Amino acid sequence: MSSARRSGVLTGTLALPTGDGRTAFVDAEDIAEVAAAALTEDRHSGRIYQLTGPRAIGFGEAADLIAAATGRTVRHLDVEPGAFVDRMVHEGVPADTARLLTGLLVDIRDGRGQDVSDGVEQALGRPPRSFEDYVVEAAAAGHWS
């Protein structure tokens, strides 16, 4: 989870320009495992895998899941893209990077990124880890303490 989203969990508000958009969060460990397999196993040669989590969820639901796992109050607050860019620049993010990251979040708002694929299962022979499992593990490890 990025430091901005971690900070949002710690303060209780994930203020992001995502609206009610949904995305199929993919676990970074799944990405790493697919990458390692692709680099070390010949059967992946020439293959392209679309990696997603097992289901698309909105940031409101993600905040609720984090709140349940941590015992904290966490909510999602939709913000306007321009205000989000301004806040990131104020926090020291270069303007071009802030606009790029905001664009990715607005894509979620606009419904892009909600498709679920079976790339993790194709590459690894098992389903991707769920956001719920990630949240419970991260909370137990104290990542949001």
Score class of each variant (00 low, 15 high):
D96Q: 11
V26K: 11
A141R: 14
V93P: 02
G46F: 12
V26E: 04
R55G: 01
G113Q: 05
A95R: 14
D86K: 10
R112P: 04
Y49D: 00
V74A: 08
R22L: 03
V135N: 02
L51T: 03
A28H: 06
F84Y: 12
G125P: 13
G113T: 08
L10P: 09
A95N: 12
E91M: 15
V79G: 10
F25E: 07
S2Y: 06
I108D: 09
D27F: 06
D20C: 11
D64R: 13
D118C: 08
H76Q: 05
D96R: 04
E137C: 05
R22F: 09
L10A: 03
F25A: 04
A95G: 04
S45K: 15
M88A: 11
T97F: 09
D115I: 10
E33L: 15
M1E: 11
G60C: 01
V89I: 09
S3Q: 15
I31C: 10
V34S: 06
R72D: 08
G82Y: 01
F25D: 12
H76R: 03
L51V: 02
Q50I: 08
S3M: 14
M1Y: 12
D78P: 04
D78N: 15
A140F: 04
E121C: 05
L105I: 06
E132L: 11
G103I: 04
D96A: 09
T52V: 10
R99L: 06
T40L: 03
T23A: 15
D27R: 00
D27P: 09
F59Y: 10
V34D: 06
R129T: 13
R75Q: 06
R5N: 05
A38S: 15
G60E: 11
L10Q: 15
